[in-house]
């Protein structure tokens, strides 16, 4: 196994260490994957026989939702590490991941509403468990920022935010499984126990789109984290020079 394939804090899991990939390479990969995904979505994947052209929203809406889940899970993992091993910077990493999750969560709700309008005839359906549980997840993590900015910075705030982030992660499987558990007939279920319910070319376009959005989220995470770290170092320097 090559260096960098095992995470420092989670030996046993094969995780590619994001920080080992140079940021410009990650940004270029995001742009290339985005272009490839758009080409596959509009020129390669066939038009759905049932929904027609509006089904193309699926290729952006579902990967964005899955990326939001991944960001929240990453934020919760960093929060867990903060409480467990106390590595420096885990609290900031958890905060930035949750911030990315909220951005992608808002985009999930927006693209989902647009898709709902053309498919179901209305922007929102309170009867859909998938929609409501995702909204709860989104609002829960939006409230994370209220907690964070209402407490003075320090170890107490970091601990409180970490516990809050960990509680929220429970909502991810609830949101994911809600349509399967409650027989939600409104929101379509594409991934079943029999595999993805779509053709090979559609699945390829979906996978490339998801890879593109994950890479974009990774790039945004790294850029925002670098900005936050620089800000904190400059503040420290200002205090030293004062």
């Amino acid at each position: 196994m090559g260096p960098g394939l095992f995470c420092d804090h989670c030996s046993g899991f094969v995780l590619l260490r994001l920080r080992n990939i140079p940021l410009p390479a990650l940004a270029v990969a995001a742009v290339v994957l985005m272009g490839t995904a758009l080409a596959l979505i509009f020129f390669y994947a066939p038009i759905d026989a049932d929904q027609g052209l509006s089904q193309k929203i699926f290729y952006i809406h579902v990967p964005i939702a899955l990326t939001a889940y991944a960001c929240f899970a990453w934020g919760a993992w960093k929060a867990f590490l903060h409480l467990w091993k106390r590595p420096p910077g885990a609290d900031l990493e958890s905060y930035v991941a949750i911030h990315q999750g909220v951005i992608f969560g808002a985009l999930t709700l927006l693209t989902g509403s647009i898709w709902a309008r053309i498919s179901w005839g209305h922007w929102w359906a309170w009867s859909s468990n998938q929609l409501v549980t995702f909204l709860i997840l989104f609002l829960f993590y939006s409230a994370y920022f209220m907690l964070r900015y209402s407490v003075e910075p320090g170890p107490a705030r970091a601990n409180m935010c970490a516990v809050y982030a960990l509680f929220g992660v429970v909502l991810i499987p609830v949101s994911w499984l809600s349509i399967r558990i409650a027989n939600d007939y409104i929101h379509p279920t594409v991934f079943t126990t029999n595999g993805p319910q779509m053709s090979g070319s559609m699945f390829l376009a979906f996978c490339v789109s998801w890879a593109a959005l994950l890479t974009l989220a990774g790039t945004m995470y790294r850029v925002e984290l670098a900005g936050k770290r620089l800000d904190s170092r400059l503040r420290e320097l200002r205090e030293l020079l004062a």
Binding site: G52, L53, S54, K56, I57, I60, H61, I64, I103, A106, L107, L110, T111, I114, W115, R117, I118
Partner: peptide
């Protein structure tokens, strides 16, 4: 068409964000 408008709107929302 209406479908085209909604698809364009969904992708535009992401691009603007």
């Amino acid at each position: 068409s209406a479908s085209e408008k909604y698809v364009a709107a969904a992708y535009l929302v992401v691009f603007v964000a």
